[in-house]
Write a protein that binds this DNA or RNA. Structure first.
Lengths: 242, 242
DNA sequence: AGCGACGACTGATGTGGATCAGCGCAGCAT
DNA sequence: ATGCTGCGCTGATCCACATCAGTCGTCGCT
Protein backbone atom coordinates (compact mmCIF):
# COMPACT_ATOMS: atom_id res chain seq x y z
CA UNK A 1 0.00 0.00 0.00
CA UNK A 2 1.41 3.36 -1.11
CA UNK A 3 1.09 6.44 1.05
CA UNK A 4 -2.11 8.42 1.01
CA UNK A 5 -0.92 11.85 -0.16
CA UNK A 6 -3.34 14.67 -1.08
CA UNK A 7 -2.47 14.13 -4.75
CA UNK A 8 -3.35 10.45 -4.56
CA UNK A 9 -6.61 11.28 -2.78
CA UNK A 10 -7.49 13.78 -5.47
CA UNK A 11 -6.63 11.59 -8.45
CA UNK A 12 -8.33 8.69 -6.67
CA UNK A 13 -11.61 10.59 -6.89
CA UNK A 14 -11.30 10.27 -10.65
CA UNK A 15 -9.65 6.89 -11.36
CA UNK A 16 -8.67 4.02 -9.14
CA UNK A 17 -4.93 3.79 -9.71
CA UNK A 18 -3.29 0.38 -9.38
CA UNK A 19 -0.30 -0.24 -7.12
CA UNK A 20 2.20 -0.21 -10.01
CA UNK A 21 0.72 3.07 -11.22
CA UNK A 22 0.93 4.52 -7.73
CA UNK A 23 4.56 3.57 -7.43
CA UNK A 24 5.38 5.21 -10.77
CA UNK A 25 3.63 8.29 -9.43
CA UNK A 26 5.60 8.12 -6.20
CA UNK A 27 8.87 7.78 -8.11
CA UNK A 28 8.27 11.16 -9.73
CA UNK A 29 8.68 12.94 -6.44
CA UNK A 30 12.20 14.28 -6.07
CA UNK A 31 13.57 16.67 -3.44
CA UNK A 32 11.24 17.95 -0.80
CA UNK A 33 11.45 21.70 -0.24
CA UNK A 34 9.91 24.35 2.01
CA UNK A 35 9.10 27.96 1.09
CA UNK A 36 8.14 30.82 3.39
CA UNK A 37 4.93 32.79 2.92
CA UNK A 38 5.03 35.78 0.60
CA UNK A 39 8.22 35.14 -1.36
CA UNK A 40 7.46 34.08 -4.96
CA UNK A 41 8.69 30.70 -6.09
CA UNK A 42 7.98 31.36 -9.76
CA UNK A 43 8.30 34.75 -11.46
CA UNK A 44 6.36 35.90 -14.50
CA UNK A 45 8.73 35.86 -17.48
CA UNK A 46 11.13 33.35 -15.92
CA UNK A 47 12.21 30.36 -18.02
CA UNK A 48 13.54 26.89 -17.25
CA UNK A 49 11.40 26.65 -14.19
CA UNK A 50 10.83 23.53 -12.08
CA UNK A 51 7.37 22.09 -11.42
CA UNK A 52 6.12 21.04 -7.99
CA UNK A 53 3.38 19.18 -6.22
CA UNK A 54 2.04 21.00 -3.20
CA UNK A 55 2.19 18.85 -0.06
CA UNK A 56 0.98 21.30 2.58
CA UNK A 57 -0.04 24.95 2.82
CA UNK A 58 -1.72 27.31 0.34
CA UNK A 59 -0.28 29.13 -2.66
CA UNK A 60 -1.67 31.41 -5.35
CA UNK A 61 -0.84 32.00 -8.99
CA UNK A 62 -1.27 35.52 -10.31
CA UNK A 63 -0.44 37.92 -13.10
CA UNK A 64 0.84 41.43 -12.63
CA UNK A 65 0.05 44.31 -14.98
CA UNK A 66 2.49 47.10 -15.69
CA UNK A 67 0.48 49.58 -13.64
CA UNK A 68 0.80 47.39 -10.55
CA UNK A 69 -2.66 45.85 -10.53
CA UNK A 70 -2.70 42.13 -9.99
CA UNK A 71 -5.16 39.41 -10.84
CA UNK A 72 -4.98 36.20 -8.83
CA UNK A 73 -5.88 33.39 -11.20
CA UNK A 74 -6.31 30.59 -8.71
CA UNK A 75 -5.23 29.34 -5.33
CA UNK A 76 -3.49 26.00 -4.93
CA UNK A 77 -4.11 23.64 -2.04
CA UNK A 78 -2.40 20.38 -1.12
CA UNK A 79 -2.42 17.88 -3.98
CA UNK A 80 -2.31 20.56 -6.69
CA UNK A 81 0.46 21.04 -9.25
CA UNK A 82 2.48 24.24 -9.14
CA UNK A 83 3.99 25.62 -12.31
CA UNK A 84 3.22 22.72 -14.60
CA UNK A 85 2.05 25.12 -17.29
CA UNK A 86 5.15 27.27 -16.90
CA UNK A 87 7.29 24.30 -17.83
CA UNK A 88 5.30 23.28 -20.88
CA UNK A 89 5.19 26.85 -22.23
CA UNK A 90 8.92 27.51 -22.00
CA UNK A 91 8.48 30.83 -20.30
CA UNK A 92 6.25 31.28 -17.27
CA UNK A 93 3.21 33.46 -17.99
CA UNK A 94 2.43 33.98 -14.30
CA UNK A 95 3.96 34.17 -10.84
CA UNK A 96 3.33 31.86 -7.89
CA UNK A 97 3.38 33.05 -4.32
CA UNK A 98 3.00 30.94 -1.18
CA UNK A 99 0.10 32.31 0.89
CA UNK A 100 1.28 30.38 3.93
CA UNK A 101 4.50 28.52 4.47
CA UNK A 102 4.35 25.59 2.07
CA UNK A 103 5.97 22.20 1.58
CA UNK A 104 6.41 20.93 -1.96
CA UNK A 105 8.09 18.11 -3.81
CA UNK A 106 9.87 18.86 -7.04
CA UNK A 107 9.05 16.87 -10.17
CA UNK A 108 10.95 16.67 -13.44
CA UNK A 109 8.70 17.07 -16.41
CA UNK A 110 10.81 14.70 -18.49
CA UNK A 111 10.10 12.00 -15.88
CA UNK A 112 6.42 12.79 -16.04
CA UNK A 113 6.28 12.46 -19.82
CA UNK A 114 8.29 9.22 -19.67
CA UNK A 115 5.84 7.90 -17.13
CA UNK A 116 2.99 8.52 -19.57
CA UNK A 117 4.56 6.12 -22.04
CA UNK A 118 4.76 3.42 -19.36
CA UNK A 119 1.37 3.90 -17.74
CA UNK A 120 -1.13 5.61 -20.05
CA UNK A 121 -3.72 5.64 -17.27
CA UNK A 122 -1.49 8.05 -15.42
CA UNK A 123 -1.45 10.32 -18.48
CA UNK A 124 -5.24 10.26 -18.40
CA UNK A 125 -5.26 11.12 -14.72
CA UNK A 126 -2.86 14.05 -15.14
CA UNK A 127 -4.76 15.35 -18.15
CA UNK A 128 -7.90 15.09 -16.04
CA UNK A 129 -6.28 17.14 -13.28
CA UNK A 130 -5.16 19.75 -15.81
CA UNK A 131 -8.64 19.90 -17.33
CA UNK A 132 -10.16 20.33 -13.90
CA UNK A 133 -7.77 23.22 -13.21
CA UNK A 134 -8.73 24.80 -16.50
CA UNK A 135 -12.42 24.36 -15.70
CA UNK A 136 -11.87 26.22 -12.45
CA UNK A 137 -10.18 29.10 -14.23
CA UNK A 138 -13.11 29.19 -16.63
CA UNK A 139 -15.50 29.38 -13.71
CA UNK A 140 -13.50 32.28 -12.27
CA UNK A 141 -13.86 34.01 -15.61
CA UNK A 142 -17.63 33.62 -15.32
CA UNK A 143 -17.44 34.91 -11.74
CA UNK A 144 -15.60 38.05 -12.74
CA UNK A 145 -17.40 38.59 -16.03
CA UNK A 146 -21.00 37.92 -15.14
CA UNK A 147 -21.70 37.62 -11.40
CA UNK A 148 -22.07 40.58 -9.06
CA UNK A 149 -19.71 40.94 -6.11
CA UNK A 150 -21.79 39.00 -3.58
CA UNK A 151 -22.55 36.06 -5.88
CA UNK A 152 -18.93 36.00 -6.90
CA UNK A 153 -17.74 35.79 -3.31
CA UNK A 154 -20.29 33.13 -2.41
CA UNK A 155 -19.47 31.04 -5.45
CA UNK A 156 -15.77 31.29 -4.82
CA UNK A 157 -15.99 30.22 -1.19
CA UNK A 158 -18.29 27.34 -2.08
CA UNK A 159 -15.79 26.14 -4.67
CA UNK A 160 -13.13 26.16 -2.01
CA UNK A 161 -15.31 24.14 0.31
CA UNK A 162 -15.77 21.51 -2.37
CA UNK A 163 -12.09 21.39 -3.30
CA UNK A 164 -10.93 21.17 0.29
CA UNK A 165 -13.47 18.49 1.17
CA UNK A 166 -11.88 16.25 -1.48
CA UNK A 167 -8.68 16.18 0.56
CA UNK A 168 -10.44 16.14 3.92
CA UNK A 169 -9.89 19.78 4.88
CA UNK A 170 -13.49 21.03 4.84
CA UNK A 171 -16.87 19.95 6.16
CA UNK A 172 -20.37 21.32 5.89
CA UNK A 173 -19.48 23.53 8.86
CA UNK A 174 -16.75 25.37 7.00
CA UNK A 175 -12.98 25.36 6.65
CA UNK A 176 -9.80 27.02 7.88
CA UNK A 177 -8.84 29.74 5.42
CA UNK A 178 -5.54 31.65 5.60
CA UNK A 179 -6.51 34.24 2.97
CA UNK A 180 -6.68 37.96 3.73
CA UNK A 181 -9.36 40.22 2.30
CA UNK A 182 -6.66 41.56 -0.03
CA UNK A 183 -6.19 38.09 -1.48
CA UNK A 184 -9.91 37.81 -2.07
CA UNK A 185 -9.97 41.25 -3.69
CA UNK A 186 -7.15 40.40 -6.08
CA UNK A 187 -8.78 37.09 -6.97
CA UNK A 188 -12.31 38.40 -7.49
CA UNK A 189 -11.42 41.59 -9.34
CA UNK A 190 -12.75 43.79 -6.51
CA UNK A 191 -11.22 46.34 -4.17
CA UNK A 192 -10.39 45.25 -0.64
CA UNK A 193 -12.90 47.82 0.61
CA UNK A 194 -15.68 46.23 -1.35
CA UNK A 195 -14.68 42.72 -0.26
CA UNK A 196 -15.21 43.84 3.28
CA UNK A 197 -18.69 45.21 2.56
CA UNK A 198 -19.70 42.10 0.65
CA UNK A 199 -18.57 39.81 3.44
CA UNK A 200 -20.67 41.86 5.83
CA UNK A 201 -23.71 41.55 3.58
CA UNK A 202 -23.34 37.78 3.36
CA UNK A 203 -22.85 37.53 7.11
CA UNK A 204 -25.89 39.70 7.84
CA UNK A 205 -27.94 37.63 5.39
CA UNK A 206 -27.05 34.62 7.54
CA UNK A 207 -25.29 32.72 4.78
CA UNK A 208 -21.58 32.72 5.57
CA UNK A 209 -19.17 34.09 8.18
CA UNK A 210 -15.47 34.63 7.47
CA UNK A 211 -13.70 35.59 10.67
CA UNK A 212 -10.39 34.79 12.36
CA UNK A 213 -9.14 32.59 9.54
CA UNK A 214 -12.21 30.41 9.42
CA UNK A 215 -15.01 30.33 6.85
CA UNK A 216 -18.27 29.13 8.43
CA UNK A 217 -21.19 28.10 6.23
CA UNK A 218 -24.11 29.43 8.27
CA UNK A 219 -26.75 28.32 5.78
CA UNK A 220 -25.15 26.09 3.20
CA UNK A 221 -28.24 25.39 1.11
CA UNK A 222 -29.27 29.03 0.87
CA UNK A 223 -25.71 29.90 -0.13
CA UNK A 224 -25.71 27.29 -2.91
CA UNK A 225 -28.97 28.68 -4.24
CA UNK A 226 -27.80 32.27 -3.98
CA UNK A 227 -24.55 31.61 -5.85
CA UNK A 228 -26.14 29.23 -8.35
CA UNK A 229 -23.33 26.87 -7.39
CA UNK A 230 -23.23 23.71 -9.50
CA UNK A 231 -19.99 21.87 -8.78
CA UNK A 232 -20.21 19.59 -11.81
CA UNK A 233 -17.44 21.61 -13.51
CA UNK A 234 -15.05 20.14 -10.96
CA UNK A 235 -16.17 16.62 -11.91
CA UNK A 236 -17.56 16.13 -8.41
CA UNK A 237 -21.03 14.74 -8.03
CA UNK A 238 -22.60 17.19 -5.61
CA UNK A 239 -21.71 19.70 -2.92
CA UNK A 240 -20.06 16.67 -1.31
CA UNK A 241 -20.06 18.23 2.12
CA UNK A 242 -21.28 16.49 5.24
CA UNK B 1 5.12 14.37 -46.64
CA UNK B 2 1.91 14.58 -44.63
CA UNK B 3 -0.71 17.22 -45.36
CA UNK B 4 -0.28 20.69 -43.93
CA UNK B 5 -3.42 21.09 -41.79
CA UNK B 6 -3.93 24.02 -39.41
CA UNK B 7 -3.34 21.69 -36.46
CA UNK B 8 0.01 20.55 -37.88
CA UNK B 9 0.99 24.16 -38.53
CA UNK B 10 0.11 25.11 -34.97
CA UNK B 11 1.87 22.18 -33.29
CA UNK B 12 4.79 22.67 -35.67
CA UNK B 13 5.36 26.09 -34.10
CA UNK B 14 6.15 24.25 -30.90
CA UNK B 15 7.87 20.98 -31.87
CA UNK B 16 9.08 19.61 -35.17
CA UNK B 17 7.07 16.41 -35.48
CA UNK B 18 8.62 13.52 -37.40
CA UNK B 19 6.82 11.77 -40.24
CA UNK B 20 5.87 8.73 -38.11
CA UNK B 21 4.48 11.11 -35.49
CA UNK B 22 2.56 13.03 -38.11
CA UNK B 23 1.02 9.85 -39.45
CA UNK B 24 -0.08 8.79 -35.96
CA UNK B 25 -1.65 12.24 -35.66
CA UNK B 26 -3.36 11.86 -39.02
CA UNK B 27 -4.71 8.43 -38.06
CA UNK B 28 -6.63 9.99 -35.19
CA UNK B 29 -8.89 11.85 -37.55
CA UNK B 30 -12.14 9.98 -38.06
CA UNK B 31 -15.33 11.14 -39.75
CA UNK B 32 -15.42 14.60 -41.22
CA UNK B 33 -18.54 16.57 -40.33
CA UNK B 34 -20.07 19.97 -41.06
CA UNK B 35 -22.17 22.10 -38.70
CA UNK B 36 -24.23 25.18 -39.50
CA UNK B 37 -23.70 28.48 -37.69
CA UNK B 38 -25.60 29.06 -34.49
CA UNK B 39 -26.67 25.52 -33.58
CA UNK B 40 -24.70 24.20 -30.58
CA UNK B 41 -22.63 21.08 -31.08
CA UNK B 42 -21.99 20.57 -27.38
CA UNK B 43 -24.45 21.43 -24.61
CA UNK B 44 -23.56 22.36 -21.06
CA UNK B 45 -24.39 19.39 -18.83
CA UNK B 46 -24.24 16.84 -21.66
CA UNK B 47 -22.18 13.69 -21.11
CA UNK B 48 -20.49 11.16 -23.40
CA UNK B 49 -19.58 13.83 -25.84
CA UNK B 50 -17.24 13.48 -28.82
CA UNK B 51 -14.16 15.66 -29.29
CA UNK B 52 -13.28 17.39 -32.56
CA UNK B 53 -10.51 19.20 -34.34
CA UNK B 54 -11.68 22.33 -36.13
CA UNK B 55 -10.72 22.31 -39.81
CA UNK B 56 -12.39 25.51 -41.01
CA UNK B 57 -14.63 28.25 -39.65
CA UNK B 58 -14.92 29.80 -36.19
CA UNK B 59 -16.62 28.48 -33.06
CA UNK B 60 -17.00 29.70 -29.49
CA UNK B 61 -17.25 27.97 -26.12
CA UNK B 62 -19.43 29.62 -23.52
CA UNK B 63 -21.24 29.15 -20.23
CA UNK B 64 -24.82 30.15 -19.59
CA UNK B 65 -26.11 31.36 -16.21
CA UNK B 66 -29.61 30.64 -14.98
CA UNK B 67 -30.67 34.23 -15.51
CA UNK B 68 -29.77 34.04 -19.19
CA UNK B 69 -26.47 35.92 -19.12
CA UNK B 70 -23.70 34.24 -21.02
CA UNK B 71 -19.94 34.40 -20.81
CA UNK B 72 -17.98 33.39 -23.88
CA UNK B 73 -14.82 31.72 -22.63
CA UNK B 74 -12.89 31.56 -25.87
CA UNK B 75 -13.24 31.38 -29.61
CA UNK B 76 -11.81 28.49 -31.58
CA UNK B 77 -10.19 28.85 -34.96
CA UNK B 78 -8.90 26.20 -37.39
CA UNK B 79 -6.40 23.87 -35.74
CA UNK B 80 -8.01 24.12 -32.29
CA UNK B 81 -9.57 21.27 -30.34
CA UNK B 82 -13.28 21.39 -29.60
CA UNK B 83 -14.65 19.73 -26.49
CA UNK B 84 -11.49 17.97 -25.37
CA UNK B 85 -12.11 19.07 -21.80
CA UNK B 86 -15.73 17.95 -21.94
CA UNK B 87 -14.56 14.43 -22.64
CA UNK B 88 -11.98 14.26 -19.89
CA UNK B 89 -14.40 15.66 -17.31
CA UNK B 90 -17.22 13.23 -17.94
CA UNK B 91 -19.83 15.93 -18.14
CA UNK B 92 -19.41 19.03 -20.28
CA UNK B 93 -19.09 22.20 -18.22
CA UNK B 94 -19.74 24.46 -21.21
CA UNK B 95 -21.49 24.71 -24.56
CA UNK B 96 -19.91 25.12 -27.98
CA UNK B 97 -21.56 27.06 -30.78
CA UNK B 98 -20.31 27.46 -34.34
CA UNK B 99 -19.99 31.17 -35.13
CA UNK B 100 -19.83 30.43 -38.84
CA UNK B 101 -20.46 27.21 -40.67
CA UNK B 102 -17.65 24.91 -39.58
CA UNK B 103 -15.92 21.74 -40.73
CA UNK B 104 -14.53 19.40 -38.10
CA UNK B 105 -13.03 15.96 -37.84
CA UNK B 106 -14.06 13.74 -34.97
CA UNK B 107 -11.42 12.16 -32.75
CA UNK B 108 -11.78 9.35 -30.23
CA UNK B 109 -10.14 10.17 -26.97
CA UNK B 110 -9.18 6.54 -26.40
CA UNK B 111 -7.19 6.70 -29.66
CA UNK B 112 -5.52 9.88 -28.50
CA UNK B 113 -4.46 8.37 -25.19
CA UNK B 114 -3.22 5.22 -26.94
CA UNK B 115 -1.20 7.39 -29.27
CA UNK B 116 0.52 8.96 -26.27
CA UNK B 117 1.91 5.59 -25.27
CA UNK B 118 3.35 5.06 -28.77
CA UNK B 119 4.71 8.54 -29.39
CA UNK B 120 5.37 10.45 -26.18
CA UNK B 121 6.39 13.53 -28.16
CA UNK B 122 2.82 13.76 -29.36
CA UNK B 123 1.66 13.73 -25.72
CA UNK B 124 3.99 16.63 -25.07
CA UNK B 125 2.62 18.49 -28.07
CA UNK B 126 -1.01 17.98 -27.04
CA UNK B 127 -0.27 18.96 -23.45
CA UNK B 128 1.44 22.05 -24.85
CA UNK B 129 -1.67 22.91 -26.87
CA UNK B 130 -3.87 22.41 -23.81
CA UNK B 131 -1.58 24.59 -21.71
CA UNK B 132 -1.65 27.28 -24.34
CA UNK B 133 -5.46 27.20 -24.33
CA UNK B 134 -5.46 27.49 -20.57
CA UNK B 135 -3.01 30.41 -20.75
CA UNK B 136 -5.41 32.18 -23.09
CA UNK B 137 -8.31 31.67 -20.70
CA UNK B 138 -6.13 33.06 -17.92
CA UNK B 139 -5.38 36.10 -20.03
CA UNK B 140 -9.11 36.60 -20.62
CA UNK B 141 -9.58 36.50 -16.87
CA UNK B 142 -7.02 39.30 -16.55
CA UNK B 143 -8.84 41.18 -19.33
CA UNK B 144 -12.17 41.02 -17.58
CA UNK B 145 -10.85 41.44 -14.05
CA UNK B 146 -8.29 44.19 -14.44
CA UNK B 147 -8.38 46.00 -17.78
CA UNK B 148 -10.88 48.69 -18.71
CA UNK B 149 -13.18 48.21 -21.68
CA UNK B 150 -10.92 49.75 -24.31
CA UNK B 151 -7.75 47.95 -23.20
CA UNK B 152 -9.72 44.75 -23.00
CA UNK B 153 -10.98 45.09 -26.55
CA UNK B 154 -7.55 46.03 -27.90
CA UNK B 155 -5.85 43.17 -26.11
CA UNK B 156 -8.42 40.69 -27.28
CA UNK B 157 -8.18 41.68 -30.93
CA UNK B 158 -4.39 41.63 -30.80
CA UNK B 159 -4.48 38.11 -29.39
CA UNK B 160 -6.63 37.09 -32.30
CA UNK B 161 -4.21 38.60 -34.75
CA UNK B 162 -1.36 36.59 -33.24
CA UNK B 163 -3.35 33.34 -33.16
CA UNK B 164 -4.59 33.71 -36.70
CA UNK B 165 -1.16 34.61 -38.04
CA UNK B 166 0.11 31.25 -36.80
CA UNK B 167 -2.19 29.52 -39.29
CA UNK B 168 -1.73 32.13 -42.00
CA UNK B 169 -5.05 33.95 -41.58
CA UNK B 170 -3.80 37.34 -40.38
CA UNK B 171 -1.18 39.88 -41.33
CA UNK B 172 -0.05 43.17 -39.88
CA UNK B 173 -2.87 44.75 -41.91
CA UNK B 174 -5.57 42.89 -40.04
CA UNK B 175 -7.80 39.84 -40.46
CA UNK B 176 -11.26 38.74 -41.55
CA UNK B 177 -13.46 38.45 -38.48
CA UNK B 178 -16.97 36.98 -38.55
CA UNK B 179 -17.86 38.04 -34.99
CA UNK B 180 -20.75 40.37 -34.22
CA UNK B 181 -20.58 43.06 -31.56
CA UNK B 182 -22.79 40.78 -29.45
CA UNK B 183 -20.13 38.08 -29.56
CA UNK B 184 -17.52 40.58 -28.42
CA UNK B 185 -19.81 41.78 -25.62
CA UNK B 186 -20.41 38.25 -24.33
CA UNK B 187 -16.70 37.47 -24.48
CA UNK B 188 -15.46 40.66 -22.82
CA UNK B 189 -18.09 40.92 -20.10
CA UNK B 190 -19.53 44.12 -21.58
CA UNK B 191 -22.88 45.16 -23.02
CA UNK B 192 -23.23 45.31 -26.79
CA UNK B 193 -23.92 49.02 -26.47
CA UNK B 194 -20.62 49.59 -24.77
CA UNK B 195 -18.75 47.44 -27.27
CA UNK B 196 -19.97 49.77 -29.94
CA UNK B 197 -18.79 52.87 -28.11
CA UNK B 198 -15.39 51.35 -27.37
CA UNK B 199 -14.88 50.35 -30.98
CA UNK B 200 -15.65 53.93 -31.97
CA UNK B 201 -13.10 55.27 -29.46
CA UNK B 202 -10.39 52.95 -30.76
CA UNK B 203 -11.22 53.86 -34.34
CA UNK B 204 -11.18 57.60 -33.60
CA UNK B 205 -7.88 57.17 -31.78
CA UNK B 206 -6.51 55.77 -35.03
CA UNK B 207 -5.59 52.38 -33.60
CA UNK B 208 -8.01 49.83 -35.02
CA UNK B 209 -11.04 49.69 -37.31
CA UNK B 210 -13.55 46.85 -37.19
CA UNK B 211 -16.00 47.19 -40.06
CA UNK B 212 -17.74 44.90 -42.51
CA UNK B 213 -16.28 41.73 -41.05
CA UNK B 214 -12.69 42.91 -41.18
CA UNK B 215 -10.42 44.04 -38.36
CA UNK B 216 -7.82 46.53 -39.61
CA UNK B 217 -4.82 47.41 -37.46
CA UNK B 218 -4.47 51.11 -38.23
CA UNK B 219 -1.52 51.62 -35.90
CA UNK B 220 -0.27 48.25 -34.72
CA UNK B 221 2.56 49.51 -32.50
CA UNK B 222 0.43 52.06 -30.71
CA UNK B 223 -2.21 49.39 -30.15
CA UNK B 224 0.33 47.00 -28.64
CA UNK B 225 1.51 49.72 -26.27
CA UNK B 226 -2.02 50.76 -25.36
CA UNK B 227 -3.13 47.21 -24.54
CA UNK B 228 0.17 46.27 -22.90
CA UNK B 229 0.10 43.25 -25.20
CA UNK B 230 2.88 40.76 -24.52
CA UNK B 231 2.17 37.58 -26.48
CA UNK B 232 4.65 35.44 -24.57
CA UNK B 233 1.74 33.69 -22.80
CA UNK B 234 0.93 32.08 -26.13
CA UNK B 235 4.49 30.76 -26.38
CA UNK B 236 5.01 32.90 -29.48
CA UNK B 237 8.12 35.01 -29.72
CA UNK B 238 6.70 38.40 -30.68
CA UNK B 239 3.69 39.97 -32.31
CA UNK B 240 4.73 37.80 -35.22
CA UNK B 241 2.89 39.91 -37.74
CA UNK B 242 4.38 41.14 -41.00
C1' DA C 1 -43.64 46.46 -52.57
C1' DG C 2 -43.96 45.51 -47.86
C1' DC C 3 -42.49 43.23 -43.61
C1' DG C 4 -39.76 41.23 -40.16
C1' DA C 5 -35.29 40.13 -38.27
C1' DC C 6 -30.86 41.34 -37.23
C1' DG C 7 -26.90 44.09 -36.57
C1' DA C 8 -24.76 48.69 -36.02
C1' DC C 9 -25.32 52.77 -33.74
C1' DT C 10 -26.92 56.74 -30.31
C1' DG C 11 -28.53 59.78 -26.21
C1' DA C 12 -30.44 59.88 -21.47
C1' DT C 13 -30.49 58.05 -17.10
C1' DG C 14 -29.18 54.86 -13.31
C1' DT C 15 -25.96 52.15 -10.36
C1' DG C 16 -22.34 48.90 -8.66
C1' DG C 17 -18.23 49.17 -7.20
C1' DA C 18 -13.75 52.08 -7.12
C1' DT C 19 -11.30 55.51 -4.75
C1' DC C 20 -10.16 58.49 -1.01
C1' DA C 21 -9.50 59.29 3.58
C1' DG C 22 -9.84 57.80 7.60
C1' DC C 23 -10.28 54.74 12.55
C1' DG C 24 -9.35 50.71 15.65
C1' DC C 25 -6.96 46.80 17.04
C1' DA C 26 -3.44 43.13 17.60
C1' DG C 27 1.24 41.60 17.26
C1' DC C 28 5.86 42.72 17.27
C1' DA C 29 10.21 45.22 17.54
C1' DT C 30 12.76 48.64 19.95
C1' DA D 1 5.56 51.75 27.14
C1' DT D 2 5.88 53.14 22.70
C1' DG D 3 5.67 53.35 18.28
C1' DC D 4 5.02 50.67 13.79
C1' DT D 5 2.95 47.68 10.57
C1' DG D 6 -0.68 44.76 8.73
C1' DC D 7 -5.32 43.75 8.58
C1' DG D 8 -10.21 44.66 9.26
C1' DC D 9 -13.55 48.02 8.91
C1' DT D 10 -16.37 52.45 7.59
C1' DG D 11 -18.62 56.83 5.35
C1' DA D 12 -18.50 60.08 1.38
C1' DT D 13 -17.85 60.87 -3.26
C1' DC D 14 -17.12 59.73 -8.15
C1' DC D 15 -17.16 57.40 -12.56
C1' DA D 16 -17.18 53.47 -15.85
C1' DC D 17 -20.28 50.90 -17.57
C1' DA D 18 -25.22 48.98 -17.65
C1' DT D 19 -29.83 49.69 -18.95
C1' DC D 20 -33.52 51.65 -21.47
C1' DA D 21 -35.50 53.16 -25.39
C1' DG D 22 -35.04 54.12 -29.37
C1' DT D 23 -33.22 55.04 -35.08
C1' DC D 24 -31.34 53.42 -39.34
C1' DG D 25 -29.75 50.29 -42.99
C1' DT D 26 -29.57 45.74 -45.06
C1' DC D 27 -30.99 41.39 -46.07
C1' DG D 28 -34.20 37.71 -47.09
C1' DC D 29 -39.05 36.27 -47.40
C1' DT D 30 -43.68 36.45 -49.09
Amino acid sequence: MIENTPLVRKLGAFVALSDPELSVLASLHKRRRTFVAGRDLVHQGQSDQAAYILASGWACSYKLLEDGQRQIVDFQIPGDFLGLRSVLLHVSDHSIEPVTEIEVTEIHVADLLDAFAQTPRLATAVLWAASRDEAMVVEHLVDVGRRDAAERMAHFLLEFGARLSLIGLASREGFACPLTQYHLADALGLSAVHVNRVLRQLREAGMITFRDGFVAFDDYDQLVRFAQFDPSYMDQKGPLLR
